[in-house]
Design a binder for these strands. Structure first.
Lengths: 298, 298
DNA sequence: ATAAGCTGTTCTCCATGAAGAACAATGTTC
DNA sequence: GAACATTGTTCTTCATGGAGAACAGCTTAT
């Protein structure tokens, strides 16, 4: 009977309410905003009742829309749960795993973990979304995310992934050091130009250095601030002699070997907490659960 | 997450189980069999589990398919209920009404009822499916059906629609009566040729006639048996002098007026139960409820 | 006051899913 | 045993739904 609303359409409607907007819902569902718009309009036409009030810049449910959403959301969630359990009941780890990760883990942290994981679970198809600015994993339609230093969102769980610590190393081009001198103590860094990286969400990668038995925070003169996503850009400027760069040591190894960058105050480098895997605390699909296990055992 | 099965697909899966086959499910849902086939296959691929075993000529659920169906069927039914109640909450009678009716009610019984109904409820879109052979209203994807003399199916309710009784009239062409003589009593009918109508499902329209104070069943010599759907065919043969025809009086009025057919044994005509509206006993959409009310008050 | 950025919606075009036809397989009837 | 009827599935074609672009409207920043 054509009076029925396809429950898949209802899931679109629920996503709009969950995300607070059509574009956010579209992003989470991996569809175009126009589909979300036309789907909600079609539901309203079929039921003959407005479900959403679209004030510009915000969406909110009507009374009827809220009542409908409250009633069907747990039902559709349980349908998803039933499907997931059917999928899991085969005992095979299969399906798709979508990870939202910063560029920073792309060169050398994630590849070995993924390679091992996919060899162990060949039926899992992995999709990597490289993004730095977005913290909300669910809103981006991903199963899990990797982040440095992000605070824990509601209902999210985090475990370490990759190196438990990473050293923040300082480096400069030989030409820069010949011109400006090589600092002999952390205090001298304030007289130098710095190239600093900024995490998503605004915080700079801090320059915390060891000074004898203590750790001090150094605020150098910042000539350039770059998103952690644009890793290679920062390295290029550093190689060009723009200043002293502060970055994860593993990123700098190739330049050290090639001589294009030289370590600065190597004895003062201190450890930084490594990246963490974030995922929703419940409704864990089998592929994600297997990946979590792979992270725990690596 | 692409691990999710669209719940609309699950509805297709449930229809296959309900109807016991792919083609029956396709008919009920108003889609092509190929869509049902590919939809179920897609669900099985997504979940990585066979849900149905398709022995040729029969379909049955696997253990996992049965478990999944048992769990999600009430959930999706409640989702439909929630939508229906949202639609009803506007207080407006709107939507679609799909009726499965025999051709017998098309000329003069249904039109006045529908005309009145649609004038009262202009927002309802009515679709009429003319079918005689099929008894299962739900399996045909209709909201309700009209039938003569059909037995009550499980969970179905019936109310009279249109005339509470209809007379079974006998008639013949003048030329036939001149040649064979005009029967003076019901008993003489056995010496005449008959044109009889058959209801869907096999029973013939019985020739029950009054004989004094009693009612007798007459079994004439049947020259032609026609489905009630082919009403005009039977009339044509009768006009051509093939025999005495037995049919609802309202169908014969035009021929009586035109003189193309003449009443036979008019004093012996007895009343027959009129048609009935059949509909599922629960989950009554608003358009159907309004139509039921219209039938009750006409 | 203007520009920029973001929203939801509408419109256009095309890729995809669905309809329809054809097929292979099986059970029933003659 | 052959013919017939029906099934589920596969293949081909095309109509439609969705992506993408553009639009109108609104809020915020300059």
């Amino acid at each position: 009977m054509k009076n029925n609303v396809p429950p898949s359409d209802l899931r679109v409607f629920l996503a709009v309410l969950d995300e607070g907007g059509f574009r956010a819902a579209a992003k989470r569902l991996g569809v175009a905003p126009s589909k979300v718009s036309t789907t909600v309009s079609r539901i309203e036409a079929t039921l003959g009742a407005p479900l959403l009030v679209r004030t510009t810049r915000s969406v909110r449910a009507t009374e009827q829309g809220r009542a409908l959403a409250d009633r069907i959301a747990p039902l559709l969630a349980e349908v998803d749960q039933a499907c997931m359990e059917t999928a899991n009941s085969t005992g095979r780890v299969r399906g798709r795993l979508k990870l939202n990760v910063p560029g920073a883990v792309m060169p050398d942290i994630l590849p070995p973990i993924l390679t091992k994981f996919q060899r162990k679970h060949p039926e899992v198809e992995v999709e990597i979304v490289v993004e730095n600015d977005l913290v909300d994993i669910v809103a981006s339609g991903c199963d899990a995310g990797i982040r440095y230093g992000a605070s824990l969102e509601k209902d999210m769980v985090s475990i370490p992934i990759g190196p438990r610590v990473q050293q923040i190393a300082l480096a400069a081009a030989p030409a820069y050091l010949e011109e400006r001198g090589c600092p002999q103590s952390p205090g001298e860094l304030t007289m130098h130009d710095a190239i600093r990286y900024r995490f998503h969400g605004g915080p700079l990668l801090p320059w915390m250095l060891k000074n004898g038995d203590e750790t001090i925070s150094v605020e150098p003169v910042t000539r350039l601030t770059i998103s952690v996503n644009a890793m290679n850009t920062g390295l290029s400027y550093a190689r060009a002699g723009l200043g002293i760069i502060g970055m994860f040591r593993n990123w700098l190894e190739d330049d050290f070997s090639a001589g294009t960058l030289v370590p600065v105050l190597a004895d003062c480098w201190r450890d930084q907490e490594g990246p963490r895997l974030y995922y929703p605390g419940r409704l864990t699909p089998t592929p994600l659960r297997a990946f979590i296990e792979a992270c725990r055992t690596s």
